[in-house]
Amino acid sequence: MLEIQDLSVEVGGREVLHDINISVMSGYTNVLFGPNGSGKSTLLMTIMGFSGYKVTKGRIIFNGEDITNKSVSERAQTGIGLMMQRPPNLVGVQLGNLVKIMSKGRVKAEDLAEDLNLTGFLTRDVNVGFSGGEIKRSELLQLAAQNPCFVMLDEPESGVDIVSIEKVGKKVHELIRGTSCAGKSGAVGKGALVITHTGQILDYVNADRGYVMCKGTVACTGNPRELLHEIRTKGYDECISCNIGKKTLVKVKEEGAN
């Protein structure tokens, strides 16, 4: 579904991602691990096509189509959606109105808000004065309304209180596992790429494959739960120092072509 080939990316004139190779098959959820500043969010922003993230080498292929030079809108319309880590404030744009506009009235914002403990937020300006956890839930609400075929989540659980985490987890599960989705790739099925530090979100999604990123590149690949265990017990150093440059840390099952 998504294939990233030898991707290098510059931000502010400095190369921050180097020779990334990642693929996500439809029906699969892949996870990105890595220390702060390793380039995980940059990768998701690049896949979404934000300006300021300049691809200097390599390609991004989505459902067989090269989208490396497509606009953000085109990527979204093909079925890619992103939950951002630090989305901008939209002063004067109410969350409920935005949901109405982006879903063209197909989705009931009130129901989604109730699912995510966000009733009362629909009349507030998007992200203005939202706490970290509220931003996460608002992002999820928008993503649920958008219902993309390929879901990218940037730390969906961070900052979310323990009462809301279950609702967030459930919503993420629905979002990734639902059978139908919007966008041109609707027929192909869903896929997801999720950034997590704590692994908490893995309780709610069946992650198939994990990548550990370090210093702007993929250091190792493997079973996400085993990778997480490794990171928890030994830190990131083990993975990076022993395996950087090697293909895989743990043998993963063969992936077929997209």
Binding site: F50, A76, P87, P88, M102
Partner: peptide, 13 residues
């Protein structure tokens, strides 16, 4: 701000 425009574009607008 460009980031605001692109944020909305990433929602399919």
């Amino acid at each position: 701000a460009q980031d605001q425009i692109e944020y909305l574009m990433s929602r399919g607008l």
